[in-house]
């Protein structure tokens, strides 16, 4: 028996993020969640393991806030949790995150499959899975829509912009999965209760034997601001539908778009 490691990220709920009128960002009221597609990735790991009796480890790199994610992650079926807890996670880029996760994965050592989602819902950068493969020097198959593991072989289907492709590789492999690879059911009460009893490993970046320089992002952060789109915002709300339709058609004609 060997291990399947599924990586997930605890992110802010984007709808909770407030853009102030000066375009500064207020995240003080934002709650967290397991990144949307990561729930599908966790389910994919659990299903594959279930068919072969493998152990699933749900791994995340986050600050103290990410601790609350473990219960949610484990209620989705993994056997144990692994949190690399460090303040550096807050400003981490793909370089930092992948190096930290890779160090933890190397420590676990006995793994056959690493599963990530195609991208995280906060940064949507699509880097960590591919970077992990390169750092661990194992094959990477991205944007997988369905996969099958038989013995030492993985067969995966991917939908690209212009084709569908089926590829095969020998384990261990990193795959990044699309949400359609696996629907993520909402955990029931029994699973939520069981999650509390599951073992969790917590380590710091230093405990992984990494130099602190690895926690420095590679590019200089010039800051974030709200994205403003300047639009006319002329909305016909009241009155007769016919009048509103005429108003809309009139303005669209004036704009020269119809």
């Amino acid at each position: 028996m060997s291990k399947i490691i599924v990586c997930y990220k605890w992110v802010l709920i984007e709808e909770d993020i407030k853009v102030n009128s000066d375009l500064s960002i207020d995240t003080s009221k934002a709650k967290g969640k397991i990144s949307d597609y990561d729930r599908n990735a966790i389910e994919a790991a659990v299903q594959i393991a279930g068919s072969m009796g493998d152990e699933v480890i749900a791994m995340t790199f986050g600050d103290a806030n990410a601790e609350q994610s473990l219960k949610d992650a484990l209620s989705r079926g993994p056997d144990s949790g692994y949190l690399i807890k460090d303040k550096a996670a807050v400003n981490a880029d793909g370089y930092v995150t992948s190096n930290v996760l890779a160090a933890a994965i190397k420590k676990i050592n006995d793994y056959k499959l690493i599963i990530c989602a195609e991208g995280a819902s906060d940064t949507y950068a699509h880097q960590v899975g591919s970077r992990l493969g390169a750092i661990l020097y194992i094959p990477v198959i991205t944007n997988v829509t369905s996969l099958k593991v038989e013995g030492e072989k993985i067969t995966a289907q991917r939908t690209l912009e212009d084709c569908m492709e089926t590829v095969t590789a020998t384990l261990p492999v990193v795959v990044t999965v699309m949400p359609e690879a696996c629907e993520a059911p909402i955990p029931g009460l029994k699973q939520v209760l069981a999650a509390k009893k599951k073992p969790v490993t917590k380590v710091s970046v230093a405990e992984l034997g990494l130099d602190t320089s690895i926690t420095q992002p590679k590019s200089e952060d010039l800051g974030i601001k709200g994205y403003a789109m300047s639009r006319k915002n002329i909305i016909f709300r009241d009155g007769d539908n016919k009048v509103k339709v005429n108003q809309l058609v009139g303005t669209l004609k004036k704009e020269g778009v119809i």
Binding site: I17, Y124, E220, L222, I224
Partner: peptide, 14 residues
């Protein structure tokens, strides 16, 4: 873009 598109992030590259 970040957070689904409501926020933009600027970076200077080495």
């Amino acid at each position: 873009m970040m957070y689904g598109g409501s926020v933009s992030k600027r970076e200077r590259l080495k």
